[in-house]
Simulated assay, not measured.
Amino acid sequence: MAGLITGEGATVDHTRVREAETYLRRPRGTTYAGRRARYDAAADRLYAAGISNTDILADVGAGWTELDVCLRVDWGWRGRYVPVDAWLDGVDLNQWTPPRSFDWFTALEVLEHLEEPERLVRTLQQHATKGVVVTTPNPQVWDVLAMDPTHVCSISAATLQNWGFQTGLLTFYGKHEDGIIGLWTR
Protein backbone atom coordinates (compact mmCIF):
# COMPACT_ATOMS: atom_id res chain seq x y z
CA MET A 1 0.00 0.00 0.00
CA ALA A 2 2.84 2.41 0.74
CA GLY A 3 4.05 2.12 -2.83
CA LEU A 4 0.69 3.18 -4.23
CA ILE A 5 0.16 6.11 -1.90
CA THR A 6 3.63 7.51 -1.30
CA GLY A 7 5.65 6.18 -4.23
CA GLU A 8 7.83 3.19 -4.94
CA GLY A 9 10.32 2.31 -2.26
CA ALA A 10 8.65 4.54 0.33
CA THR A 11 8.61 3.52 3.95
CA VAL A 12 5.60 3.64 6.20
CA ASP A 13 5.70 6.37 8.85
CA HIS A 14 4.32 4.36 11.76
CA THR A 15 4.16 7.37 14.08
CA ARG A 16 1.88 9.24 11.66
CA VAL A 17 -0.20 6.08 11.18
CA ARG A 18 -0.75 5.86 14.97
CA GLU A 19 -1.58 9.58 15.17
CA ALA A 20 -4.10 9.25 12.33
CA GLU A 21 -5.68 6.18 13.94
CA THR A 22 -6.00 8.04 17.25
CA TYR A 23 -7.62 11.00 15.47
CA LEU A 24 -10.09 8.80 13.59
CA ARG A 25 -10.99 6.78 16.71
CA ARG A 26 -11.86 9.83 18.84
CA PRO A 27 -15.51 10.27 19.76
CA ARG A 28 -17.40 12.05 17.02
CA GLY A 29 -20.48 14.14 17.48
CA THR A 30 -22.17 13.01 14.28
CA THR A 31 -23.19 9.79 12.61
CA TYR A 32 -22.65 8.82 8.99
CA ALA A 33 -26.17 10.12 8.31
CA GLY A 34 -25.09 13.47 9.77
CA ARG A 35 -21.95 13.62 7.65
CA ARG A 36 -23.65 12.33 4.52
CA ALA A 37 -24.62 15.83 3.33
CA ARG A 38 -21.01 16.54 2.31
CA TYR A 39 -20.66 13.16 0.57
CA ASP A 40 -23.93 13.64 -1.31
CA ALA A 41 -22.84 17.14 -2.31
CA ALA A 42 -19.53 15.79 -3.62
CA ALA A 43 -21.29 12.96 -5.46
CA ASP A 44 -23.72 15.44 -6.98
CA ARG A 45 -20.84 17.58 -8.28
CA LEU A 46 -18.95 14.54 -9.56
CA TYR A 47 -21.98 13.26 -11.47
CA ALA A 48 -22.84 16.69 -12.83
CA ALA A 49 -19.26 16.92 -14.13
CA GLY A 50 -19.41 13.48 -15.74
CA ILE A 51 -17.87 10.86 -13.45
CA SER A 52 -18.37 7.40 -14.95
CA ASN A 53 -18.09 3.79 -13.80
CA THR A 54 -14.77 3.48 -15.64
CA ASP A 55 -13.19 6.42 -13.78
CA ILE A 56 -10.70 6.28 -10.93
CA LEU A 57 -11.27 8.58 -7.97
CA ALA A 58 -8.50 9.27 -5.45
CA ASP A 59 -10.03 10.39 -2.15
CA VAL A 60 -7.35 12.50 -0.47
CA GLY A 61 -7.75 12.50 3.30
CA ALA A 62 -10.18 9.60 2.97
CA GLY A 63 -10.62 9.07 6.71
CA TRP A 64 -13.36 6.47 7.23
CA THR A 65 -13.76 6.12 3.40
CA GLU A 66 -17.39 7.12 3.74
CA LEU A 67 -17.37 8.88 0.37
CA ASP A 68 -16.83 5.46 -1.20
CA VAL A 69 -19.81 4.07 0.74
CA CYS A 70 -22.01 6.97 -0.36
CA LEU A 71 -20.96 6.74 -4.02
CA ARG A 72 -21.50 2.99 -4.20
CA VAL A 73 -24.55 2.46 -1.97
CA ASP A 74 -26.49 5.67 -2.53
CA TRP A 75 -25.37 6.68 -6.03
CA GLY A 76 -24.67 3.29 -7.67
CA TRP A 77 -21.14 4.22 -8.76
CA ARG A 78 -18.90 1.29 -9.78
CA GLY A 79 -15.61 3.02 -10.55
CA ARG A 80 -12.29 2.46 -8.83
CA TYR A 81 -11.76 4.19 -5.48
CA VAL A 82 -8.28 4.91 -4.10
CA PRO A 83 -8.09 6.13 -0.48
CA VAL A 84 -5.18 8.38 0.44
CA ASP A 85 -4.78 8.94 4.17
CA ALA A 86 -2.20 8.89 6.96
CA TRP A 87 -3.83 5.84 8.58
CA LEU A 88 -2.73 3.80 5.54
CA ASP A 89 0.94 4.65 5.46
CA GLY A 90 1.58 7.89 7.34
CA VAL A 91 1.29 10.12 4.27
CA ASP A 92 1.77 13.82 5.05
CA LEU A 93 -0.63 15.74 2.80
CA ASN A 94 1.39 18.92 3.40
CA GLN A 95 4.08 17.35 1.19
CA TRP A 96 2.31 14.60 -0.76
CA THR A 97 2.33 14.38 -4.54
CA PRO A 98 0.28 11.69 -6.29
CA PRO A 99 2.42 8.92 -7.78
CA ARG A 100 0.34 9.13 -10.99
CA SER A 101 -2.62 10.90 -12.53
CA PHE A 102 -6.19 9.96 -11.64
CA ASP A 103 -9.44 10.96 -13.30
CA TRP A 104 -10.84 12.61 -10.19
CA PHE A 105 -9.57 13.78 -6.83
CA THR A 106 -11.64 14.66 -3.81
CA ALA A 107 -10.42 16.39 -0.65
CA LEU A 108 -13.40 16.64 1.67
CA GLU A 109 -12.82 18.49 4.94
CA VAL A 110 -9.05 18.32 4.36
CA LEU A 111 -7.74 21.71 3.25
CA GLU A 112 -8.33 23.40 6.62
CA HIS A 113 -5.90 20.87 8.17
CA LEU A 114 -3.00 21.91 5.91
CA GLU A 115 -0.33 24.54 6.40
CA GLU A 116 -0.26 25.34 2.67
CA PRO A 117 -3.56 24.14 1.20
CA GLU A 118 -2.94 25.82 -2.15
CA ARG A 119 0.10 23.59 -2.72
CA LEU A 120 -2.06 20.47 -2.43
CA VAL A 121 -4.85 21.97 -4.55
CA ARG A 122 -2.44 22.88 -7.37
CA THR A 123 -0.88 19.41 -7.17
CA LEU A 124 -4.28 17.75 -7.46
CA GLN A 125 -5.21 19.99 -10.39
CA GLN A 126 -1.98 19.03 -12.17
CA HIS A 127 -2.66 15.30 -11.67
CA ALA A 128 -6.42 15.24 -12.36
CA THR A 129 -7.40 14.23 -15.87
CA LYS A 130 -11.02 15.29 -15.27
CA GLY A 131 -11.46 17.25 -12.06
CA VAL A 132 -11.25 17.93 -8.34
CA VAL A 133 -13.95 18.33 -5.68
CA VAL A 134 -13.21 19.91 -2.30
CA THR A 135 -15.24 20.86 0.76
CA THR A 136 -14.32 23.01 3.74
CA PRO A 137 -16.11 24.81 6.57
CA ASN A 138 -17.33 28.30 5.70
CA PRO A 139 -15.30 30.87 7.71
CA GLN A 140 -18.13 33.39 7.36
CA VAL A 141 -20.26 31.10 9.53
CA TRP A 142 -17.75 29.24 11.74
CA ASP A 143 -14.55 30.02 13.57
CA VAL A 144 -12.82 27.30 11.55
CA LEU A 145 -9.73 27.18 13.74
CA ALA A 146 -11.86 26.60 16.87
CA MET A 147 -13.87 23.75 15.30
CA ASP A 148 -11.07 21.17 15.58
CA PRO A 149 -7.62 21.38 17.19
CA THR A 150 -6.08 20.09 13.95
CA HIS A 151 -7.46 22.96 11.85
CA VAL A 152 -4.64 25.35 10.96
CA CYS A 153 -6.23 27.59 8.30
CA SER A 154 -9.57 28.76 6.99
CA ILE A 155 -10.42 28.98 3.31
CA SER A 156 -13.12 31.20 1.86
CA ALA A 157 -15.23 30.65 -1.23
CA ALA A 158 -13.37 33.56 -2.82
CA THR A 159 -10.04 31.80 -2.23
CA LEU A 160 -11.33 28.63 -3.88
CA GLN A 161 -12.63 30.70 -6.79
CA ASN A 162 -9.17 32.27 -7.15
CA TRP A 163 -7.82 28.71 -7.41
CA GLY A 164 -10.20 28.02 -10.31
CA PHE A 165 -13.11 26.34 -8.50
CA GLN A 166 -16.80 26.88 -9.03
CA THR A 167 -18.15 27.14 -5.50
CA GLY A 168 -21.40 26.74 -3.65
CA LEU A 169 -22.53 27.21 -0.07
CA LEU A 170 -24.29 24.28 1.58
CA THR A 171 -25.30 23.20 5.06
CA PHE A 172 -22.96 20.50 6.38
CA TYR A 173 -22.81 21.06 10.17
CA GLY A 174 -26.23 22.37 11.13
CA LYS A 175 -25.98 26.09 10.41
CA HIS A 176 -27.30 27.61 7.19
CA GLU A 177 -24.61 27.65 4.45
CA ASP A 178 -21.89 26.61 6.90
CA GLY A 179 -19.92 24.62 4.33
CA ILE A 180 -18.26 25.40 1.02
CA ILE A 181 -18.02 22.99 -1.88
CA GLY A 182 -15.76 23.56 -4.85
CA LEU A 183 -15.57 21.87 -8.25
CA TRP A 184 -12.66 22.32 -10.63
CA THR A 185 -12.71 20.62 -14.01
CA ARG A 186 -10.11 20.32 -16.73
Rank of each mutant, 00 (worst) to 15 (best):
V91Y: 08
V152Y: 07
W163E: 11
Q166R: 13
L108Q: 07
E115Q: 13
R16E: 13
R100W: 07
E116A: 14
T136N: 00
G179R: 05
N53C: 04
T31S: 15
S101G: 12
A49I: 04
L120A: 04
V144K: 06
A49P: 00
H151T: 02
Q125S: 05
V91T: 14
V110A: 10
D55K: 04
T65R: 12
R119Y: 08
Q140N: 13
D178M: 06
G29T: 11
D44G: 03
G29R: 14
L183Q: 08
Q126M: 00
T30V: 14
H113R: 08
D85W: 06
F165I: 02
D40V: 02
D59E: 08
T6S: 15
F105V: 05
W77P: 11
G9I: 01
D40T: 02
W87N: 15
L67A: 05
F172I: 13
E8W: 10
T6G: 09
W104H: 10
W77V: 03
A48E: 11
G131H: 06
L4C: 00
T11K: 14
R35F: 11
W184K: 05
Q161H: 08
K130V: 03
L111W: 02
E118Y: 09
N162F: 01
N94E: 11
V144Y: 04
V121E: 02
W87A: 14
L124V: 04
I56C: 11
C153E: 09
T167H: 05
R80L: 13
L108H: 09
S156Y: 06
V84R: 10
E115S: 08
L24I: 10
Y23V: 05
R26M: 10
L169C: 07
L120V: 09
R28G: 12
T171M: 05
A107R: 01
A42G: 03
G131D: 04
L145I: 15
R18F: 02
W87I: 14
A58W: 02
R119A: 12
D44N: 10
T106C: 05
